[in-house]
């Protein structure tokens, strides 16, 4: 399966941005749904509208949120009515994607008129500019991160995000069920959305299938209803990957050969686990996590084994 395809430079509509940010912060819209859906954000960086209002209109970058805060309000309040209309007339309507009014400031008549005439959406929040800027950048850097959705199951085992991949019907979901009953947490079954935020790969469930598991013979079950909220986690950083396969492993029996899986621009460690009747997959997944964690610091068990074995052989020869 090809899962490294490069997504194009990403964008999010102001409407989707509003949905995302209003989950965490008190942000509302003063504009029509049409204006919200027509405009797109492409950068997680924000700008203060003040610079453009004071005459440096060419400094506006398309695709960024323009912040209208206390400094903008006090600047505008010092201008005469004519100067205010001139200031708005100078603004580059083509390049303004969205204006966010912060600190609970009331939108002036001129600003509302400007927004309606140019159909540029206005959002408003009660939080002050400095906090709003952090909130906006956080939401946008998540939403604009490269993203891919793949077939697989994502679990949090001993607090570590493990992506389980393998053919359909090989037992990923049954293994997930087993892991849940051992107290581990499910993020998503059968389909995992992965975002590359900074250097991290963060996985969650596509919204349409969140909380569900398909168990052959039982159909689609709701894990949250059956096992409770503690059986689920909304998202986790993906640290490594396990591939279930029916193929017999001919090659590496020591676990020395590095095996990687490319995901977006990252590469993560991959452990191939052959599936056979009688193998307890949940136990093997738990063991993989222990192996992964211990390999992150200190020598691998196998290196210790080889070292000890070599010493023992030498001792035999000497005797």
């Amino acid at each position: 399966m090809v899962i490294t395809s490069e997504p194009e430079s990403r964008s999010i509509s102001v409407s989707d941005f509003l949905d995302a940010i209003s989950e965490r912060h008190p942000v509302s819209s003063l504009s029509s749904q049409a204006a919200l859906s027509e405009h797109y954000l492409t950068s997680s960086r924000v700008q203060k509208l003040g610079l453009a209002l004071s005459g440096f209109a060419d400094k506006i970058h398309k695709g960024r949120i323009q912040i209208y805060g206390n400094s903008e309000r006090s600047y505008i309040s010092r201008l005469s009515d004519i100067q205010v209309s001139e200031a708005y007339a100078r603004l580059d309507k083509e390049n303004i994607s969205c204006i966010l009014i912060t600190a609970g400031i009331e939108a002036t008549e001129e600003l509302v008129e400007f927004s309606e005439a140019s159909s540029i959406p206005i959002l408003a929040t009660t939080i002050p500019s400095s906090d709003a800027i952090t909130a906006v950048s956080n939401v946008l850097s998540e939403r604009l991160a490269p993203e891919v959705t793949i077939h697989g199951t994502l679990m949090e085992v001993f607090g570590i995000g493990v992506l389980i991949v393998g053919d359909s019907g090989i037992g990923k979901s049954e293994c997930a069920l087993d892991l849940i009953t051992r107290g581990h947490r499910l993020i998503s079954d059968d389909s995992v959305r992965i975002r590359e935020v900074g250097e991290k790969l963060v996985g969650d469930a596509p919204s349409s299938i969140r909380d569900f598991i398909e168990i052959r013979g039982l159909g689609i079950i709701n894990a949250k209803e059956l096992f409770g909220v503690s059986a689920l986690s909304p998202s986790v950083e993906i640290r490594f990957c396990i591939e279930f396969s029916e193929e017999r492993l001919g090659g590496d029996r020591l676990g020395l050969e590095p095996n990687v899986m490319p995901l977006l621009k990252s590469r993560i460690q991959k452990y191939p686990l052959p599936v056979k009747p009688g193998r307890n997959l949940a136990t093997l997944v738990e063991a993989s996590v222990r192996v992964f964690v211990s390999s992150q610091d200190g020598p691998k068990a196998v290196e210790n084994l080889l070292h000890g074995h070599a010493n023992a052989m030498n001792a035999t020869i000497k005797n």
Partner: peptide, 25 residues
């Protein structure tokens, strides 16, 4: 093996897995 890809959202699905197909939305 049968894979379905939705390019506009970069979503890959395995056609033999129902949740995976539903995630294509």
């Amino acid at each position: 093996s049968i894979t379905i890809f939705r390019a506009d959202r970069n979503v890959f699905a395995n056609a033999k897995s129902i949740l995976s197909v539903l995630a294509l939305a």
